[in-house]
């Protein structure tokens, strides 16, 4: 599968973290959705963000994407500040929300054209690349039919491909495989690996623990705080568990917050 990510060779600046977070906090009234989280993500890394529902994963991700103002703390994404330079951040990132948010009343090709267009991809390039993209996704027959008719798995793959279409440096995926069958999930992770190989940094939230093992590093969030952050192998060692499932249960058991 060709995903058409083409990154310039790593410049010295690229060796620094692409996402840098220090004591990042989000409060809604008295509720601490995200409580002083700190971490940094290296270029080309697949960074997993784990946590139960309501642990604060999406809120943290929204702040990093420039969709939400942090209450306190510091963070930079692609070298830009999350308080003042959200619009600059948005040029360099791709985003896929947990709810499918392409236009149902447009065709896959029209969706690609629209999002490519507003990211400033030249029309000629959009045309060429969208044709290749449709082929690689196996959507030739559906390319000119409305998205509303596509099965969820295909919609998610399309959404991911569109998030990568303008060749961002970082792509944020918020529970991308929720409600998707195991085969499609597997294909989805193949796409993620391909993108990462091309140098795209992947920031992905999930609560499928088998997926956590695919990440280079994972953080586990409990009640808005980061409780663990390491490679899956060292986490299993550290907590003396055989798999990520057990690691997660041991940490998540301590959660006091209920599902919202």
């Amino acid at each position: 599968m060709e995903l058409l990510i083409n990154h310039k060779s790593a410049s010295p600046a690229d060796n620094n973290a692409v996402i840098e977070c220090r004591d990042l906090t989000k409060k809604f009234g008295n509720f601490l959705a995200v409580d002083r989280i700190s971490f940094s993500v290296k270029p080309g890394e697949i960074f997993g963000f784990l946590g139960a529902n309501g642990a604060g994963k999406t809120t943290a991700m929204r702040m990093l994407c420039g969709l939400s103002y942090p209450s306190s703390g510091h963070a930079t994404v692609a070298g830009f500040d999350v308080y003042r330079q959200q619009e600059k951040i948005k040029r360099h990132i791709g985003y896929m929300s947990q709810k499918f948010s392409l236009y149902d009343d447009l065709t896959p090709l029209e969706n690609i054209q629209f999002f490519g267009g507003i990211y400033g991809v030249p029309a000629r390039v959009i045309k060429e690349r969208s044709r290749e993209l449709v082929r690689s996704l196996g959507l030739e027959k559906e390319a000119t039919k409305l998205v509303s008719g596509l099965p969820l798995g295909w919609k998610q793959k399309l959404a991911f491909a569109i998030a990568l279409f303008h060749q961002p440096r970082i792509v944020f995926l918020d529970e991308p495989t929720g409600g998707v069958d195991p085969v499609t999930r597997r294909q989805f992770w193949d796409m993620i690996y391909e993108a990462a190989e091309k140098g795209v940094t992947i920031f992905v939230t999930t609560h499928y623990m088998d997926e956590a093992a695919y990440c280079n590093r994972v953080t586990i969030m409990v009640d808005g705080k980061i409780e663990a952050l390491d490679t899956p192998a060292s986490l299993m060692q550290q907590f003396a568990c055989d798999n990520m499932d057990e690691v997660f249960y041991r940490l998540a058991r301590t959660a006091r917050r209920k599902d919202p």
Binding site: L67, E87, K90, S97, K99, S101, D104, F115, I118, Y119
Partner: peptide, 13 residues
């Protein structure tokens, strides 16, 4: 309501 605004807001539009 549909949620597409989120995808718009995350672009540099």
């Amino acid at each position: 309501e549909i949620g597409t605004i989120e995808q718009i807001n995350v672009t540099p539009i």
